[in-house]
Amino acid sequence: MTAYREVVVRTPLALKILPIVSVATFFIAWEIVVRTGVVPDTMLAAPTTVTQLLFDKFTNMDPDGALLHQHAWVSIQEAFGGYFLALAVGLPLGLAMGWFNVAEGLARPIFEIIRPIPPVAWIPLTIFWFGIGLPGKIFIIWLGGLVPCVINAYVGVKMTNPTLIQMARTYGASDWQIFRQLCIPSALPMVFGALQIALACCWTNLVAAELLAADAGLGFMITMGRRLAMPEMVVLGMFMVGLTGAFIGVIIDRVEKRLLAGIRR
């Protein structure tokens, strides 16, 4: 007789079925509401119409002047441009602010001035400065991604176990050595948290930037849908934004798991 029996945890059948039922009900209700005319089709498009448009958009340039994957590609370019710039500036800045007093003393006040301004508020100034091209949008997205990068890197360094720092000092480590070999590794989980948060911020700001000034991209597609009173295009644009964002999020999650294997969160 073995000492223990394997415990089998059973999820009730209802728990497995309910999620599927709920999503299915949502889409069916949506379809019915539009088909029966409870909600007029100038306000909302049925899921089937949206799906039709989805396939149509891969080959048909009308009425917004670009194919779906071209819109998506423009958006992804802008988002990644801003995102990587934000990482390249924000993470080193945050790490340095966390450890070096001089860096914190100099950068903190400016950061605190910039931080409460929503990135969306910068759009008009950016249009003055850069016009409505790619650099302007990258600037907005960069601003949006910068704040979470700095905060997370900073908090990550600040949360380094003080005992370890004291021990390193006892063994005669210099400030720089402690920063490089102790603070940065211990801040890594927070830094990777920042990757996800910054991505979500970048993606939100991308849509905002494109709503106001653009001639291509998913946000532009949504705006055109509204101007042309085509709700199916608006809904398609929203779904594409959500889908692309979620997809990139999953990729970053994978990379994070690969790189951080073995570090306890």
């Binding site: 209802a14 728990l15 309910l18 999620p19 599927i20 039922v21 709920s22 999503v23 949502f26 100038t42 306000m43 909302l44 969306v120 993606w203 939100t204 849509v207 905002a208 709503l211 946000g219 949504i222 705006t223 849908g225 509204r226 009173a229 709700p231 608006v234 809904v235 644009g237 929203m238 779904f239 934004v241 959500g242 889908l243 964002g245 979620a246 999020g249």
Partner: peptide
Amino acid sequence: RYVNAIVKPLFDLLKPMPPISWISISILW
């Protein structure tokens, strides 16, 4: 967990859409 099983998938479906992308449809509505 039953409430969770009903609401979570819907929530996960709507979550990745940035609120700003709703502006257009809310103006239509």
